[in-house]
Design a binder for these strands. Structure first.
Lengths: 222, 222, 222, 222
DNA sequence: GATGAATGAGACTTCATTCAT
DNA sequence: AATGAATGAAGTCTCATTCAT
């Protein structure tokens, strides 16, 4: 095996601590998760933690960065791989939503971080940067999707992005108290409806101009 | 002033502790809020707390009950006061959404409780009861609203209730990290759209049967 | 045995913690002495310590107060018991010096506190109050002594008080590095000299007026 | 510039660490000063520290040696430069006292070391060697001074040396708690008094033998 | 010789909880 | 019922020291 340089070795340590931290924060909560638990989960001592992060909050921030990177990357990929094809785009977005919401830990973790942000102004400011990055990317995803579907948006894409993010976040929190509904499902319904409506609208325009009757309006949900 | 009986006096103490607990849990977080802080906020000592609640979790549960009672009561009132009038119902629901989301502390508190539920099976079971009560009431509110608006639902009312609750919850969490969007606004948009669509659908049906042209489909958002 | 009231019981706890703290600070040093060590020395748990003192520094301050009280009290007694008699006063002061310097722990403790004062402005301000109390009392002791001995002072009594306190403090610190000299001895020498000089001066005055020779000036040290 | 040899380079590192250690011990205290702080102050890493000193205590010892060397050297110079002239000697001693006491850090540092000596027998033994060197040198300074002034000593010069060292040490510790008096001032007073007394004594002897009146005894302090 | 990541003991402090008053 | 002193476990963080690079 190739010997790791010192820098590589430390980067590995950091990565493991971050991974362990994500698990610990999600499982135990930001406040309750102990440095001991986090370090041990990564296979290190408490001291190693403090060699890599000044405080627990510093780790939380790094986790937020990591988490954002992942989501942004996945979003970019979803857009790029669709290559302008609306059907592929729909499928990609649905798959992305399912994949993200399939692991509720991500949203539990986010809830922890957001609650911490509500109490720590410093952390809030730093976390905000990450939030904005994600929000912009999702806004772009939505705008692209709507454009490709040729669907006039209900609201501005950035507002829709907020709504989508809130919905995903909220769903994850409702689950532990017994709510069986799923964000991916809800989103899927909206997407299908939007497409259906787009197609329907075109059809209606045509039928209006020819005087032919169309499908009943009860099939056209919102 | 009339002397309070022993029972009344204790009930008062409980109430104050519950009120203080809501504030403390929202401000400081469930884990970080100390019994001392809660008791002091109610004007009592730690001992008084333990005379009224076995543990911190027992208080959390009582708080959940209280919170649910408030929301259920407000929902019932919103339905009843509409007296079958769709416009009044629309206004009531919008007002309810605004009033609830105006105080983000309620949702911060709920996030705390939901996260705690994710870790404490006992608490989760107990909180679930409360959640179900709210969910049923909101389902009824939605069903009633849709019925009065004569709008065919996108999904089952109970699923819509979950979505609405998730959206409200999610929005509250997004705020501390800088998201400026508002749940009440989002909901309002949906409501208006739904009404618009309902009216439009009726008009379309009519125009179709008479052959008259209708407003362009681009005015029909989703 | 008489049952202790709650207040009495806590006062006892405080006293024991203070006593234990004095020992621990002197033996182990202010920084190194642990709350555990202090509490255990008093027969309590760490928690009991924090029920009585907010921080280690708060204990240090209480110790300073206690220490000052003792010294001030002893000084007052030394003055009062002399009842204006110069010989008794001399003996009292010498005894006081011996008794204080016989227990070097007091000065070790003081050195710890003074060093801490050099680093903690808050503590310095609070300790200063105690220092001033002692200094004033010792100034009074010295002024009284000089007056009764009818010795014109080398400097202002308050400056002499500083010198005496510094000397006592310094001697205690020199001991651990092997200096065998003693503050009490040094002070005794000064006192005897002062008296001797006072007597001598009177004699010289007399001899001058009668023309009788006196003892050689080489017997009159400084 | 000439390349430093390996040995020279290491000597430089040691010197810097010692200088940084003096500052750190004085500023932060022996116990609280961290190796990191010391190394960083010297522009090195912790590793460099441990390449030069086995433990923190080893550095303390080296610092003690350094400090002693400086004082001894200054004392020797003060004696030598006086070249037997009493007035110059007086001035030199006064200047030395002022220069030493002008930087209270030296005495803060010494207090730290002495307190550490009180707790570490090994360190005490080693520090004692340094103390003795200084004490002997100061004893010689005092003896020389008294001889040149032709003043019969109050006590043995070595005892006076202890007193002077204690006084200097004590004064430095009293300062942080607000004592405004100064060792240099105190010493100056003593020196002036001693000289005055020496001159006076000579005059008195003369006046006694001639029957002439002399200055009032109240001008002759002790 | 110098670096600094990692260790692990130990520090101060907080806090849910108990219990005598 | 209410108080609050005391407990003791647990948490965050510091730091002297080691050792591979």
């Amino acid at each position: 095996m190739a010997r790791l340089t010192r820098a590589e070795s430390q980067a590995r340590t950091r990565e493991r601590l971050i991974a362990s931290g994500r698990i610990a924060f999600a499982r135990t909560g930001y406040v309750s998760a102990s440095i001991e638990e986090i370090a041990e989960g990564a296979g290190f001592s408490k001291g190693a933690f403090y060699s890599n992060f000044a405080t627990k909050e510093a780790l939380a921030l790094e986790i937020a960065r990591f988490d954002t990177d992942e989501v942004v990357q996945a979003t970019v990929t979803a857009i790029d791989h669709a290559k302008g094809n609306p059907d592929r785009m729909m499928a990609n977005v649905a798959a992305l939503a399912r994949s993200l919401s399939e692991n509720p830990d991500r949203y539990i973790l986010r809830a922890e971080l957001m609650l911490h942000a509500a109490r720590s102004p410093g952390f809030a400011a730093a976390y905000q940067e990450q939030y904005i990055r994600q929000h912009q990317q999702i806004t772009e995803l939505i705008a692209t999707l709507l454009y490709q579907l040729n669907v006039p948006p209900l609201s501005a894409p950035s507002v829709l992005a907020s709504a989508v993010m809130a919905l995903a976040q909220g769903h994850a929190l409702l689950r532990p108290v017994g709510d069986p509904s799923s964000f991916a499902e809800t989103l899927r319904t909206f997407l299908d409806t939007a497409v259906h409506r787009a197609r329907l609208a075109a059809e209606v325009d045509k039928s209006l101009s020819t005087g032919q009757p169309r499908a009943s309006s009860s099939e056209q949900p919102a």
